[in-house]
Simulated assay, not measured.
Amino acid sequence: MADAGGMVEKRGAGLWLTHFGLIVGILFIFFPIWLALVASTVTQPEIARPPMPLVPGDQFFENYRKALVSGVNAPVARMLFNSGVMAVGIAVGKIAISLLSAFAIVYFRFPGRRLFFWLIFLTLMLPVEVRIVPTYQVAANFGMLNSYSGLIFPLIASATATFLFRQFFLTVPDELAEAARVDGARPMRFFWDILLPMSRTNIAALFVILFIYGWNQYLWPLLITTDPDMNTIVMGIKQMFPSGDDIADWPVIMATSILAMLPPILVVISMQKLFIRGLVDSEK
C-alpha cells in the first residue's frame, strides 16, 4: 500500500510538473501575441514612449476601424477578402484534384498507373519556388495576372494530398467496391456515396492544413499581383513597414497583424474535432 501511495504521489508530482511546463510554454508563445494586441489598442506616442504598456488601451475600435477601412496602403478588409478567397480556393482545389487523382490511381486499371503515381509524387521535389519563373510565364500567357485564378490555379496541385488519399483508399475493403459493382453503381456513384463520406475526417484535416498554407502564401501573390486591390493580407503587412525616413503607424500595423491571425484560428477551432480525428483515427 505504501508503494502504491508513493507511485500515486510521484505520478501526481509528474503531472503537475508537466502541466507547469505546458503553461510556461503557452505563456512564452502567447506573450508576443499579447504585446501585439496591446499595441493595437493604444496610440502611437504610447508605443514610442518606453516602457511599452502591457495593458490594453482605449483606442481599440478606432485603430481597428482605421485598419479595416483605410489601412496604410490599402484597406485591410479587402486584403482579408483576397486572402480568404485564395486560401479557400487553394484548399478546395487541392482536395478535389487529389481525391479524383487518388481515386483513379487506386480503382482504375490503366497502363502506366504506377508510373503516373510516382511522377506525381516526384513533384514534391519541385516546390513553387523552384519552378516559379516558368509558372509565372504560363500564368501571364493565360492572362491570369492580378486575378483570383492566378492566385489559386497554379498552386492547387498537391502530391502530398494525393499520396494521403491514395493510402487511405488502399485501406478500404475491396468488398465495398465489389458490392457497389454488383448493385450496378457506376464508378463515380461509388466515389460520391461511399468513398467521399468515409474520407470526411481526412478531408477536414487536410482542409485546415491547406487553408493555412494558402493563407500564409507570400512569394507567389507578390509576383502574380501588381494591383493594390489584389494584395493579400500577408503582402499587406509587409508593405506597411516604412522605408527610408517614413514613420510606421504601429497601432494600425499591429491591428492588421491581429486581424490576419483570426481566420486561421477560427478555421482550426471550428474544425478541431474533425481535424484531430483525421490525424489520429485509424479505424475507418
Rank of each mutant, 00 (worst) to 15 (best):
K238Q: 15
L68T: 01
D174P: 04
N82W: 02
W215H: 02
F61K: 00
A67T: 04
F81T: 06
M240L: 10
P134Y: 09
V76G: 00
F165G: 13
E178R: 14
P251N: 07
Y136S: 08
N231G: 06
W250H: 06
L124Y: 08
P154V: 12
V85C: 02
A248M: 13
A161Y: 11
F241G: 05
P251E: 06
E62V: 05
M86T: 15
G21I: 09
V133F: 11
A204C: 02
K284E: 01
L17P: 03
K284V: 08
Y148Q: 09
L206S: 05
L119E: 06
L22P: 03
A96W: 09
F110Q: 09
Q272P: 03
R114F: 10
S270T: 11
V55Q: 02
G93E: 10
A204I: 07
Q137R: 14
L35T: 12
V128G: 04
S270N: 04
G184C: 05
D246H: 10
D193E: 14
G184F: 05
I23W: 09
A67F: 04
M254G: 00
V208Q: 02
P228Y: 06
L151W: 10
N82C: 03
L99V: 05
L222N: 10
A139C: 09
A139H: 09
V234G: 08
G93R: 10
S158L: 12
T41M: 11
W220F: 05
P154Y: 10
S149H: 12
P264A: 08
F168T: 13
I265S: 09
S158M: 12
F211A: 04
V267Q: 01
M7E: 15
I253N: 07
P242I: 11
G236I: 11
P228C: 08
V85E: 03
T226F: 05
W192E: 07
V280H: 01
P263T: 09
P53E: 01
I237L: 15
A185I: 03
S83V: 04
A205D: 03
L119W: 09
G150P: 14
A161V: 15
N216K: 11
L223F: 06
A204H: 03
L35W: 07
I132G: 05
K238W: 12
M198S: 07
A74I: 05
A177E: 15
T162I: 13
Y107L: 05
R166L: 15
A39F: 07
I212K: 04
A157E: 15
Q167S: 12
I194K: 06
T226V: 06
W118A: 01
I237K: 07
N63H: 04
R166W: 10
V55Y: 03
I90L: 13
